[in-house]
Each structure stands twice: as structure tokens, then as C-alpha cells.
Amino acid sequence: MTRHTRIVMSVVYWAFVIYLFVPLALMVTMGFKDSKFIGFPIRAWTFDWYATVMQDTQVLAVFGYSMAIAVSTTVLSLIIGTWMATFLGPNMFRGKAIVFALACLPAVIPGIISAIALRIFARLIDIEPGMLAIILGHTVHNVPFVALVVMARLSTQPKSHIEAARDLGADSIVAFFRVTLPYLKPALIGAGIFCMLLSFDDFVRAFFLGGYQPTLPVLIFAKLRSGMSPEINAISTIVLIMTAILGLWAERSMRRLNKGS
């Protein structure tokens, strides 16, 4: 490649970075504006919006609600996804390609359709819209992600590790818990945090599967429909900082995973 194209490319890259960061930076900035009106110009600054958010019991309750959903979803997704991966990863059987495709299906179905289908299904199995329905919906959506991450890690585990465990007296369950599970740990941390983010950030499923109690994205959506306000910016900024920290942590444990193998 010539120097010319190289420069063009680096310009495109940095332009893209700016495109990604500017909107978020604006959003954070507006959260400190001392006026109810979102937009330029900004004449005075304040922390009041954060104080308001911190005292808003509804926001705090919703935050806790979303967190509870995210944690339950993560636990369920990790269990089912890991089980799925230990089944689909090492075993060869007829029709595996189809089973694999069906296992990944929820991850690629357009969000609205997935949400609608799950809403109808929840009705079928008699689950009222609400926390349980959202947890179920999020778990269905997250299991394929967990399974894929765990399968990738599993494929790097030498077969002899499990054989050695069996040789030394473990049955398949004990071998799994004492040898395979510790080996999967970094993948599970990474996938788990990813699940938390997916669940905590999800709007469309939470919107259609939720009852009267909104999750955080649904609450922000509702507030947005009745108009922008710096309070929303403050909430969003808190969410942004939290997700960034979680994401970086996930990324770190996934990297260590790749280095280890």
C-alpha cells in the first residue's frame, strides 16, 4: 500500500472513532447543563441532575429491577449455555449442523420478531408479562452467545485433561466440575459479563415482555417519548460508565483466555 492510502485510512479510522464518541460525549455533557432544555448553547453548569437522579426512588427501584433481571439471566444463560457447549462442542452426531444452527437461531432473529414470538410464547405457557417473562426472554437470547464463547474455549482444552481426571477416579460429573469448569473460567467470566450487558441494555424484549414495572431502558424510552431532559442524560451517563467498566473487565478476562491457549 502506498503512503497515500495509508494516510487516508488512518483518517477514516479516526473519523470513525470521532463518529462513535462525539454523540456519547455530547450526551454526557448535556447532563451537566444547568437548564431543562437539551441543546446548545450551554450557559451554566450543574451537578443537580445527578442529585435528582440519586434521590428519585423510581429510578433507583428500576435500576435494582434491571440489575436483578440481568443477574438472573446471566446465571441461567451460563448454566444452559455451558451445558449446550459441552454437548455441541466435542460430540459428533448426525444432524449436528442443523442442531447447531437451531441453537444459534435466537441470536440472529431480528429483535422485534424475537420479542413478539416470546410474548406469544409466554402467553402460551401462562407466564404473565413481568420479571419472569423478561428473564426467560433474555435467557433465550443470550444462551447462544454463551455457548459460542464456551465452545471456543472448550475446543482448546486437551482431551487428555478429562481422560486424566477419569483415570484418577472421577466420574464424568466430577471430572467436569473439577477439571473442565476451572479451565472454562475465563470464558465464563467474559461470557457472563457480556450476558449482563446484553440483558441490562436490552430494550425490545423488556418492552414487550415487561409488565407495569419498567426496566431501565424501558424507563428511559418512556421518559424520552415525553421529551428530552437532562435527568435522562444523568441516568444514561451512569449506565454508560457502568457498562464501560463491565465491558473492559470482560474484555480483559477474554484476552487472558486467548493468551492462555
Partner: peptide
């Protein structure tokens, strides 16, 4: 990593 709604909101401000 930031969710759909928050990012959509950011674009609204932009």
C-alpha cells in the same frame, strides 16, 4: 457496550 436506547438518545442530541 452502551445500550440501544442510550445510544439512540445520543444521536438525538447530535
Amino acid at each position: 457496550w452502551v445500550g440501544e436506547i442510550v445510544r439512540t438518545y445520543a444521536i438525538m442530541i447530535l
